[in-house]
Design a protein around this nucleic acid. Structure first.
Length: 121
DNA sequence: ATGCTGACTATGT
DNA sequence: TACATAGCCAGCA
């Protein structure tokens, strides 16, 4: 079965919509899940085609290493992305990066206060 | 048809 | 850590 460009684009959006709240996924990860591994740039291109007003959670899509990459396309969007993510509970590191280990989709769970054996408190 | 661009990533210096 | 380069391939002039 062929992969029409539009089919791929739909799949990309579909994958992005599945990213849980409070988590983030990288372009590469999304590309792989959408069946176009190795072509993360197409994810960005698909996102660019998202009709404004659409409820797609684009803010959960980040560049490799947890970097917010939107700055190149629209500096203001980069700022908004950070605000939105923080509202979902995502915390940023010193250089404005997200810890993929803790917030990456399927990476690990978000920090839960002392979930270890040492009793919290 | 050809060539350049890009919401990217990995690697090298 | 930061910048440069190569690989990638669908859009667009």
């Amino acid at each position: 079965m062929i992969d029409s460009a539009e089919g791929v684009r739909s799949r990309i959006w579909s994958v992005i919509r599945k990213i849980p709240r409070g988590r983030v996924a990288t372009y590469g990860q999304i590309a792989a899940l959408a069946g176009i591994a190795g072509q993360p740039r197409r994810v960005g291109q698909a996102l660019r085609s998202v009709p404004s007003g659409d409820s797609i959670p684009w803010q959960r899509v980040v560049s490799a290493g947890g970097v917010l990459g939107l700055g190149r396309y629209d500096p203001m969007a980069g700022w908004e992305q950070r605000v939105r993510l923080e509202q979902e509970g995502v915390r940023f590191g010193r250089r404005g990066r997200v810890s993929l280990t803790e917030f990456g989709w399927k990476g690990r769970n978000p920090p839960r206060r002392r979930a270890s054996k040492k009793r919290a408190r």
